[in-house]
Deep mutational scan, measured.
Amino acid sequence: NQASVVANQLIPINTALTLVMMRSEVVTPVGIPADDIPRLVSMQVNRAVPLGTTLMPDMVKGYP
């Protein structure tokens, strides 16, 4: 099973992602692959992302 990117904390709308905000976890449904975490750094979320939420491609501005 492939690990996905999961919010490690509440991420407010328009926040630029940092490594501490994300963790990898095997979840269903599958979200953004954990391998993409380095690419996500400094990209902004377009909505508030609660703790434990799987990051989906449509939540991150400019992804992929």
Score class of each variant (00 low, 15 high):
Val60Ser: 01
Pro33Arg: 08
Asn8His: 13
Arg39Lys: 15
Leu19Pro: 05
Glu25Ile: 06
Ile13Phe: 12
Ser42Arg: 08
Pro57Ile: 07
Gly31His: 02
Arg39Gly: 06
Tyr63His: 06
Val45Trp: 00
Met59Arg: 03
Thr53Gln: 10
Gly62Ile: 05
Val27Asn: 03
Pro50His: 11
Met21Pro: 00
Asn46Cys: 14
Ile32Arg: 01
Met21Val: 03
Gly62Tyr: 06
Val27Asp: 02
Pro50Ile: 08
Glu25Pro: 00
Met56Thr: 13
Thr18Asp: 04
Val5Ile: 13
Ile11Asn: 01
Met43Ser: 06
Gln9Cys: 05
Gly52Met: 04
Val41Thr: 06
Pro38Leu: 13
Val20Asp: 05
Val30His: 13
Val5Tyr: 02
Leu51Ser: 12
Val6Asn: 00
Val49Arg: 02
Ala3His: 09
Ala16Met: 12
Gly62Thr: 06
Leu10Glu: 14
Val41Cys: 14
Leu51Phe: 13
Pro50Cys: 15
Asn1Lys: 06
Gly31Lys: 00
Asn1Ile: 15
Ile11Ala: 01
Thr54Gly: 02
Leu10Thr: 12
Leu55Trp: 02
Pro29Ile: 07
Leu19Ile: 09
Val30Met: 14
Ala7Asp: 02
Val20Glu: 05
Val30Lys: 07
Gly62Pro: 05
Pro29Ser: 04
Arg23Lys: 07
Asn8Lys: 09
Val60Ala: 01
Leu55Pro: 01
Ala48Trp: 07
Ala34Arg: 05
Pro29Asn: 05
Ile32Thr: 00
Met21Gly: 03
Leu19Gly: 04
Val41Pro: 02
Leu19Cys: 15
Ser42His: 14
Asn14His: 12
Val6Met: 04
Thr18Met: 11
Leu51Val: 09
Thr53Pro: 00
Val20Tyr: 12
Pro33Ile: 11
Arg39Pro: 03
Val45Gly: 00
Met21Ser: 04
Val30Gln: 13
Asp58Leu: 11
Thr28Met: 11
Thr54Ile: 10
Met59Ile: 05
Val6Thr: 12
Val60Lys: 00
Asp58Lys: 08
Pro29Glu: 06
Met22Cys: 03
Ile32Met: 03
Val27Leu: 05
Ser42Gly: 15
Thr54Ala: 07
Leu51Glu: 11
Arg47Ile: 08
Asn1Gln: 13
Leu19Val: 06
Leu10Trp: 10
Ala3Thr: 13
Arg47Leu: 07
Val26Gly: 04
Pro38His: 11
Gln44Ser: 13
Ala48Asn: 10
Pro29Lys: 05
Pro64Ala: 14
Val60Gly: 01
Gln2Arg: 05
Leu55Ile: 11
Ile11Trp: 00
Val30Phe: 13
Ile13Trp: 13
Pro12Gln: 09
Val27Ile: 05
Pro38Met: 14
Tyr63Pro: 04
Ile11Phe: 02
Thr18His: 04
Gln9Trp: 08
Thr15Leu: 04
Val20Met: 14
Glu25Ala: 12
Val6Gln: 03
Ser24Gln: 13
Val27Arg: 09
Ser4Ile: 02
Ala48Pro: 06
Thr54Ser: 04
Glu25Asn: 08
Arg23Asn: 05
Val5Lys: 01
Met22Ile: 09
Ile37Asn: 01
Lys61Met: 12
Pro50Phe: 13
Met22Pro: 00
Val30Ser: 12
Val20Cys: 13
Gly52Tyr: 05
Pro64Ser: 15
Ala34His: 08
Pro38Tyr: 12
Thr18Leu: 07
Met22His: 00
Pro29Trp: 03
Gly52Arg: 04
Lys61Asp: 10
Val26Met: 07
Pro12Glu: 06
Ala3Leu: 11
Met56Leu: 12
Asn8Trp: 06
Val49Leu: 09
Ser42Ala: 14
Arg47Gly: 04
Val20Lys: 14
Val45Ile: 08
Val20Leu: 13
Val26Asn: 12
Gly52Asn: 13
Met56Tyr: 09
Val60His: 00
Ile37Met: 14
Asp58Ile: 12
Ala7Asn: 00
Leu51His: 09
Arg23Ile: 05
Val26Arg: 04
Val45Thr: 10
Glu25His: 07
Val6Asp: 00
Thr28Leu: 07
Asn1Val: 15
Ser24Val: 12
Leu19Lys: 06
Val30Leu: 13
Ala16Arg: 07
Glu25Thr: 10
Asn14Tyr: 14
Leu17Gly: 01
Val30Asp: 15
Ala7Tyr: 02
Val45Tyr: 00
Gln44Thr: 15
Gln9His: 10
Lys61Asn: 11
Val6Gly: 00
Gln2Gly: 15
Met56Asn: 06
Ser24Phe: 06
Leu40Ser: 00
Pro50Asn: 10
Met22Lys: 00
